Simulated assay, not measured.
Amino acid sequence: MNCDNKRIVEVCRIFPDIIRTTLTYQDMDFNKLQEIRLRINQPLICIYDNREVIIHRITISAQMIRETMEHVSNYSLYAFEEEIKQGYITITGGHRVGIAGKAIIENGYVKTIKYISFINVRLSHQIKGCSDKVLQFAHKEDRLMHTLIISPPGCGKTTLLRDMIRQISNGTSNYIGQTVGVVDERSEIGACYMGIPQNDLGIRTDVLDCCPKDEGMIMLIRSMSPKVIAVDEIGKASDVEAIEYIINCGCTVIGSVHGDSYEDIMQKPILNRLISEKLFNRFIILSKDNGVGTIKDLISLE
């Protein structure tokens, strides 16, 4: 990898020297590097081009974990207490540092995580233009339709949703730009760092970061007057109820759910409402059949 690459510098800086040096000179294309995993007393492992690469010459020590967390938190874990409760910290560039260890529970909720012994750095990758093939499908003439992306994990649904947001917000040669409100519950769409999206979501997009989807959708309707609301990984009954509310307010929704097919979603009681009550009328089904992001099917209800 080329260490002049801004993104590899962003990631490398959080690691101890021995890991930083190894990653910098490993024979890899940084754009294909997806995850870097540190587990105490285990070898360094990378997920590269959807394959696992085990680097046996480095055994992760407690000191390496400690030093990495010091760099991630700028030597102040306390300042990231809220993020730690969620199990991850987002760093410059939108890269997510997932952590695991001993969960400290208070009143039935996770208060913090101590004795951090496992780290998973998920690298942020934005693929501009990946939604070109589905943008016209998501429209009826010049009107954006309620669109749902159905995808198994790891098939690129968030990447596709992110680029749809960018293009809807900026506008294209065929469609005027619209104000988009994004509820980014897990900081995966915008990858905000200190409140600023690290991914390009367009010039007319407002982001509510680290907020539950059901509450966030209603908050954005009341405060930011969006024409479009975007959410990732709809799953709870309260999410569906909030979607019903904002659709009744005249707002268009684009979102995603985990599922293998249209029929799969119909068999899940909560998600079935998205179809049976005709909350969505455009469905994009993804798979890995021909690589990540394969468009398996497009279904229109009108």
Rank of each mutant, 00 (worst) to 15 (best):
P197L: 08
Q34L: 12
S117F: 04
K236V: 04
C155M: 13
I55L: 15
G181L: 09
S124R: 08
S76E: 10
I270Q: 04
K296E: 15
S73T: 15
F30R: 09
R122P: 11
V134D: 00
K111A: 15
N174M: 13
I89W: 03
S61E: 10
Y75H: 11
T112K: 00
P16V: 02
M219Y: 10
A242I: 08
I234R: 05
G101W: 04
T59D: 07
I36N: 08
F118A: 06
I45M: 14
I254M: 03
F283R: 01
A242P: 08
R37K: 15
S225D: 07
D232V: 09
N248Y: 08
S124L: 15
H56K: 12
I104F: 04
E188V: 07
V9E: 09
S225L: 01
I165C: 11
E244G: 12
I270W: 04
L279M: 15
T179N: 13
T147A: 02
N199D: 07
V110P: 08
I91R: 09
N41S: 15
R204W: 02
C12R: 02
D297G: 05
T68N: 03
I265T: 06
I149V: 13
V240C: 06
G293S: 12
P197K: 03
H125V: 00
F15Q: 02
K111T: 03
I218D: 04
H56Y: 10
D184G: 11
G129I: 06
P269Q: 10
Q86A: 14
V240K: 07
K236S: 14
